[in-house]
Write a protein that binds this DNA or RNA. Structure first.
Lengths: 190, 190, 190, 190
DNA sequence: TATGAATGAGCCTTCATTCAT
DNA sequence: AATGAATGAAGGCTCATTCAT
């Protein structure tokens, strides 16, 4: 028998992201994805139960990837503004380098199909995040707010700005980037 | 838009929002929308070129509605923290009172179908917004940042928090609301 | 709007019978049936919920037709051997003249899809049949057996013989026909 | 048939019967059958050319089995009513004990796939049957009718009754059984 | 204006079958 | 001999859209 090509899942994932981002969710179809992945549509069903299953698994996969993206291997995670700046920039880097993936995640976060995944997988931030937030609060570095709120204050504005500038075909200048981080930091810091 | 039965367009809009939010974008179909609007599917084509056209026009329609929602008729728009708080709360109010509409807008903002609308209709904030931001900058009330940045810093976090808490089935407490506004304000104010 | 062509259902029925008899149940498909009926496959779904629904309704329709076939408008239904012979010959006539329909019914009687229809529609024999049987029993013309048994003794052999001879490409001679009726009658009569 | 793992063919046969009777002909698929037989689908193709070939061979196999079922090893086959009663009861026994097989045969007898098998394999009744019928006719025990007719008169009614009562969830009482045999016998006997 | 009828195109999925090991 | 992997073809069904009234 042939060997199950584990990389095939990756190819399917990649194709799915591409198609969804090109044609929108509605416009995406198993056959388009299959063609893009250079695979028979039937093959997809060897690896996934059905379309929903595939989308869900892809979503979870990407969500995890994004979670890791905040941190580099050797990151210093001591509670300091510098640490936050690094993480923040890592995230920014991730977004612009993986715009397609990020878009995919955004597109589906609000979709009912994904809704209940979010509830179940609500260990959301990797422990590293939890630790940093808690330690920073303890060190009086940032305000004693709920982690979700801190997260939103720090990352929502830059996410929105990247999307906005991309939709206008523009790019954020280094200067603007600094401005946004400094302002976001002002929001959460003490 | 033609005069015809103007109310019918509204009914179609309302039905479209409802169906899209109930069944997701994928699950929405012209016939479902027609049934929900108590109209024949063919009738929709008297008022819109095709499905895309309908969705686009609905999007623009709602975007405008949301734009107005920030301001009340007799709003005092003098540049002050109080003014910003009022506007901010208006926006929050709008989101939770019109979650369906808001969701609809969110869902479609990233969709390729809508993408280029955003570019064309980039008068985005009604002049009232522009004025307030500029005056506030002149009055040294807020930082001299690009309007888009100010907007993101002010509104992106609360939007994300509402969605987050909704997806968890929770609600923001008054206290949290205040915390978020104060932090957002800290971000943009001088 | 166009007028709903009631005859269209008939065309679909006829096409379904033909296709099923030609290609067997497995080989039958909505598109084949549609093509045979000279209709778009989608059209079938205007008149039937789905394939099963169509088959069921067709089955019931034919079952009723067959029920009527035993009797002619002006049939004399007094309890006598002659009456039975007439009915019996009517049935034989129906089978050979509507072999396709009859085959269809036979094919599906054992199919699980149809199973529970039979239970529900178990008014089986039109009242005329019930009456004749009961009166004949009262008149000591036939044996006091359960109606189902009488029915089987009378009609099962001829049905089987027609199918058998058809499958062999042969035809029953008048002589054989008489033999079979006389023997069947001997079985039930007193 | 090749020697190979003869048992495997049996397992496939058994699985096929089970699946067909559970899910209907339409619902049966090679993979379901393979799973039920605890074999890879590809394996089936080592023993059969294709699905049709498998079904056909299974049909023939079962037809033969049924043929043998009428007779017990040490059956007395002298032409007498008792002999017929024994055979008749054997057949009845076979039907209710092998309802699945019997159903399978019934289901496929009318199917075009099988049609021409019947013609080719028209040695139908094992010689034992032929002999009994001919001897009985010679002994003036039964009427001088064509063997097919005798067969139909004897066995069609009971077959139909078993199916009927099964579809109603009922069972034939011993009394009814006797009634049916006696009537059937009356039909063919002199 | 309004709409029920009609359909070609397409979607998701499954199937019988072959391939490579 | 045996099998998991792979797929082209087909199936049932829905949809956006047009037609005819």
């Amino acid at each position: 028998m042939r060997i199950k090509d584990e990389d095939k899942v990756t190819r399917i994932y990649r194709a799915a992201i591409k198609v969804v981002n090109n044609d929108g969710f509605q416009g995406s179809s198993m056959s388009k994805i299959a063609k893009e992945a250079d695979v028979s549509a039937a093959t997809i069903y060897l690896y996934f139960e059905n379309k929903d299953d595939m989308i869900k698994k892809l979503f979870i996969h990407l969500k995890a990837r994004m979670g890791h993206s905040y941190f580099r291997e050797d990151s210093d995670l001591s509670p300091s503004k510098g640490t936050f700046r690094t993480i923040w920039l890592n995230h920014y880097q991730y977004i612009i380098e993986n715009m397609e993936e990020y878009n995919f995640l955004e597109n589906f976060s609000n979709c009912p199909l994904i809704g209940h995944i979010e509830k179940e997988n609500n260990h959301d931030y990797c422990p590293a995040f939890e630790n940093l937030f808690e330690q920073s609060k303890a060190a009086k570095l940032i305000q004693p707010l709920h982690n979700d709120i801190i997260y939103s204050l720090l990352f929502a504005p830059i996410s929105q700005m990247v999307k906005k500038s991309k939709s206008l075909g523009a790019t954020l200048s280094t200067n603007e980037l600094i401005q946004i981080f400094e302002a976001s930091w002002k929001a959460v810091s003490i």
